[in-house]
């Protein structure tokens, strides 16, 4: 089944659900968490990395080994798809309505279109 699961987060509530789902449903898989910093981001890369570290250690509380995580810069769709393929992911997990957005979300839609590996989309409740 899935061995390497890439979770893309924009720090939105539904990205948080995506992270929790990845942890709960793919316990055997290696998980990697990615955030893409764009020109419009409210964070610098360093701030995003701190935020991501907090997020991951919170979600994997009590575990001895935390999933790998990284912050990259660029276009979110391209970076998610490229990181997934460079790392050899066999599944991408992501939220579908980004921060402040309704509906599918342009990043999720772009990733679904561009990705050759399966994409698991998670909505916030």
């Amino acid at each position: 089944m899935f061995n390497k699961v890439l979770v893309a987060t924009d720090f939105s509530p539904c990205a948080q659900r995506a992270l929790e789902l990845a942890r709960a449903h793919f316990p055997q898989a290696e998980v990697r968490v990615l955030h893409v910093v764009t020109e419009e981001s409210p964070f610098t890369t360093t701030e995003a990395l701190l935020e991501l570290e907090m997020l991951v250690s919170d979600a994997w509380k009590g575990e001895t080994s935390l999933p790998g995580h990284e912050v990259v810069q660029g276009s979110p769709v391209q970076q998610v798809v490229e990181s997934a393929s460079a790392w050899g992911a066999d599944l991408i997990v992501m939220g579908v309505s980004g921060q402040g957005g309704q509906g599918l979300g342009s990043v999720a839609e772009g990733v679904v279109r561009a990705s050759t590996i399966p994409v698991l989309t998670v909505k916030s409740r």
């Binding site: 279109r113 399966p118 989309t121 909505k123």
Partner: peptide, 23 residues
């Protein structure tokens, strides 16, 4: 090649649960 199917898009947007999209 180009578009995410409109039916898939509708399901993703309105589904009460996670959706796994495969191509």
């Amino acid at each position: 090649g180009l578009l995410l199917g409109s039916q898939s898009q509708k399901v993703v947007t309105h589904a009460p649960c996670p959706v796994l999209l495969v191509r």
